[in-house]
Design a binder for these strands. Structure first.
Lengths: 186, 186
DNA sequence: TAAAAAGTGGTCCAAATGGTCAAAAATTTA
DNA sequence: TAAATTTTTGACCATTTGGACCACTTTTTA
């Protein structure tokens, strides 16, 4: 983690750090930052605790690294919304991408949700800078479509909030969804 | 807390237990079950740690008591949906009630969200029994309205999931909402 | 293949934390 | 007001946990 590390990580470094992140994702998404222990992560990764601390300076450091990678994935589908596309197609496409993410990456969604829920201690500044920047841009596209009469008037920000909440709900609250759909046709 | 206690709590008992629950709500909703400490709760309640443990057997016990009361509040608006009412009015009313709850009781919403997010260790059985029971009942009302042609066809379960997710989003992810709405008209 | 570098893990430590306990203080009851 | 009961708290304990240390092993490099 020190500044003097070479930019190119060795094979071992890449593998081990990846294994640690995978294990940490499992553990953090279930227990949260405080509830997760280095021992649990170490066990899940098949490594010893000191060995984990050889690759990461601290538990918080793992969490931070994990969360940073997540944000990129989370924003990726948003970037694909194009002003030149058809409004309905672009929006539906985005919704499908978000829903697919919830289905395929529930742990990531939960980890992110936990972070925000607890006040986003590590990501607050990212939210209010780079995420806000790209959201503003996409909301402008929505407003452009509305101005052109190609989309019914709607508040762009709250449109995105709605999409996020509805799609992520199925990953974040899967326990509840499953409990309530028990025996019902989905 | 033992079974031999009289049903009627003394004034002091009621006041202290209430103060503890208030403080615990503050602390648990921010830090989660694991992240919250008895010391933090004690400080927030203006009591000493042993004194807290005089009224509650354990930290988990406080959490459990708190969560139980919450579930009732959470379900209350759902109970008010009447088969005999006008579909649109009943549903809009419910949405408004849920949205009001998010605005007025964000801590409660967050606490509940954290619980579910972490797998609902304490509430799983309540979810799949009493909550499921009342939801099934209300979904039947939705289906009745649809059958009568008074409501467009929609899956009742997912309709409720959508309402829950969208309304609770503003409480649970308030940090994100605020960060992104900064400088924008809500 | 020898030296240097990278990687590993057993052991230990200090701080945090949930919880106990007995004695003191306050309150209620007789 | 004296005895009984309830409430409060300071001191203490056991466990967990993040992290440091250092000797040892493996891998890479010259």
């Amino acid at each position: 983690m020190s500044g003097s590390q070479p930019k190119t990580l060795s094979r071992i470094q890449r593998e081990k750090r990846s294994a640690i992140k995978q294990a940490a994702l499992d553990v953090f998404s279930i227990y949260g930052l405080r509830g997760a222990t280095l021992d649990k992560i170490a066990q899940a990764a098949g490594l010893t605790k000191p060995n984990i601390l050889y690759y990461y300076a601290s538990k918080d450091d793992i969490y931070f690294d994990l969360l940073n990678g997540l944000l990129d994935d989370w924003v990726a589908p948003l970037r694909k919304i194009l002003k030149t596309g058809d409004p309905l197609h672009e929006i539906l496409n985005y919704m499908r991408a978000k829903l697919a993410m919830s289905r395929e990456k529930p742990r990531e969604s939960k980890l992110f949700a936990t972070e925000i829920l607890h006040g986003a201690p590590l990501t607050q500044d990212v939210l209010s800078t780079s995420l806000k920047e790209i959201l503003d841009e996409k909301v402008a596209i929505i407003e452009f479509w509305i101005a052109e009469g190609r989309l019914a008037p709607v508040n762009g920000y709250h449109l995105f909030f709605s999409i996020w909440s509805m799609t992520q709900h199925y990953a974040d609250f899967d326990v509840q969804v499953k409990a309530l759909l028990q025996g019902a046709q989905a």
